[in-house]
């Protein structure tokens, strides 16, 4: 399944097996030189992905954060200072931190794919 409309400029790369991701938790996926946080909201059968870097203190840790929801909106909390970010559009929910980049995710035959646009490398440039 997937939860965002894809378009032609997206490349889907295979990230990992479904069972590699803990239920209601996250893992970090390596894509070339990038780090992407991948989250499985098992309770609602949804997948989300975002940059692994927390913009607050520039730490590669969002995949280790606690996920949850606020008024139904899926979010992740950074382990360092509990800054929380929406996984729908990446905005910071509890502060003025800059937003994080989010990616579409789909699962086919037990394989999880993350959709990256061609310019994903520029995000970290």
């Amino acid at each position: 399944m997937m939860n965002r409309s894809s378009n032609d400029s997206i490349t889907w790369f295979p990230a990992c097996k479904l069972e590699d991701v803990p239920a209601n938790g996250g893992v970090c996926v390596k894509y070339n030189d990038e780090q992407i946080a991948l989250f499985h909201f098992a309770r609602r059968g949804e997948w989300y992905a975002s940059q692994n870097l927390c913009p607050h203190r520039q730490q590669m840790v969002l995949s280790r954060g606690i996920i949850g929801s606020e008024n139904g909106e899926p979010k992740v909390a950074c382990p360092f200072h509990k800054k929380t970010f929406s996984l729908v559009d990446g905005h910071c929910i509890n502060g003025a931190e800059c937003a994080i980049k989010v990616y579409p995710v789909k699962v086919e035959d037990g394989q999880v794919f993350i959709g990256v646009s061609k310019c994903v490398e520029e995000v970290y440039a």
Partner: peptide, 19 residues
């Protein structure tokens, strides 16, 4: 945690109630 959320709570939980 899932049992507790099923029986006593709503939604997906968060960084406050999970710990």
């Amino acid at each position: 945690y899932d049992e507790v959320l099923d029986h006593l709570g709503t939604g997906d939980g968060c960084e406050v109630c999970k710990p």
